[in-house]
C-alpha cells in the first residue's frame, strides 16, 4: 500500500472488555482472539500515517461511558466509551504509535469522511461484534436468527462485500441481536472503494456472542 493515499487498510475487531488482560483474573479465555485482533490492527496500520477508529456507542452492549470494574477506587473524568478504550488498548498492544482519532458511531450514522485527508495514508480500526444471542448464558439469551446472521456477516467480511455488510448492519434483527457492529459497519462501508479483498482471520463465540476479526 506504500504510495497509496486515503484509507490504506482496515481492521475489523471485537470490542470485548476482556481484551484488557487483567479483567479475567488469573485465566485468559480470549488469548487467541486478542492475538488475532492485535495482528489485524498491526497489519492494517502498516505504512499508515494516522489511524481512525470507528467506535460503536449505543445500547447496553456498547456503553458510551465505561469504567474498569476492577479498579479499587472511583475514578472521575470525562466519559469514554468502551469501544474507544478497547481500540486504544489494541493499538497499544500492536505497538502502533500514530496519531489516532476515535469516532463515535451510532446506528451507522457517523460520517467521518471529513477526517480523511486524501493525501494522508489512513488506517481504519473498525470495532464491533456480531450477534450476542447464541447460548443460554449469552447477553441476549438464545435467538435462533443469530446463527444465519453471523454466517452472513462472516461471509461479507471475508469477501470485503461492503454492500452486504451495510445491509446486514441495517437489518432490524441487528438491533434485536445486540450486534454492536451495526453502529460501525455501515460507516466503514461508505468508504470510497479503494480497498479490495478481505480475509477473515478469526471467528469464535465463547460466551454466546460472536467475535470476528477481519482485514480489508
Amino acid at each position: 500500500m506504500t504510495g497509496a493515499t486515503g484509507v490504506t487498510g482496515a481492521a475489523f475487531v471485537p470490542m470485548t472488555p476482556l481484551f484488557f488482560r487483567h479483567l479475567s483474573g488469573q485465566a485468559d479465555p480470549v488469548a487467541e482472539l486478542r492475538d488475532a485482533a492485535v495482528d489485524a490492527v498491526r497489519e492494517a496500520c502498516r505504512g499508515a500515517e494516522q489511524v481512525v477508529a470507528l467506535c460503536p456507542v449505543g445500547g447496553r452492549e456498547a456503553p458510551g461511558d465505561w469504567h474498569d470494574p476492577s479498579r479499587t477506587r472511583p475514578l472521575h473524568g470525562a466519559p469514554r466509551s468502551l469501544a474507544e478504550q478497547v481500540g486504544e488498548h489494541l493499538l497499544e498492544l500492536a505497538g502502533v504509535d500514530l496519531p489516532a482519532t476515535y469516532v463515535e458511531c451510532t446506528d451507522g450514522e457517523a460520517d467521518f469522511r471529513g477526517l480523511l485527508d486524501p493525501g494522508v495514508r489512513t488506517a481504519l480500526v473498525v470495532l464491533g461484534d456480531g450477534a450476542a444471542a447464541r447460548s443460554q448464558g449469552a447477553p441476549g439469551h438464545i435467538d435462533e436468527r443469530s446463527f444465519a446472521y453471523d454466517d452472513a456477516v462472516a461471509a461479507a467480511l471475508a469477501a470485503a462485500d461492503r454492500n452486504a455488510l451495510a445491509s446486514l448492519a441495517q437489518a432490524p434483527e441487528a438491533f434485536e441481536l445486540m450486534v454492536t457492529g451495526r453502529h460501525t459497519w455501515p460507516v466503514a462501508a461508505r468508504l470510497e472503494p479503494r480497498l479490495h479483498g478481505g480475509s477473515l482471520t478469526h471467528r469464535s463465540d465463547p460466551f454466546g456472542l460472536t467475535y470476528v476479526v477481519a482485514r480489508w
Binding site: 476482556l18 447477553p139 465463547p206 456472542l209
Partner: peptide, 14 residues
Amino acid sequence: RGIRPPARTTRALA
C-alpha cells in the same frame, strides 16, 4: 481485599 486476582472472571464482560 484486592490482593489476589479472581480465578476467572467473564460475567458481564463478554
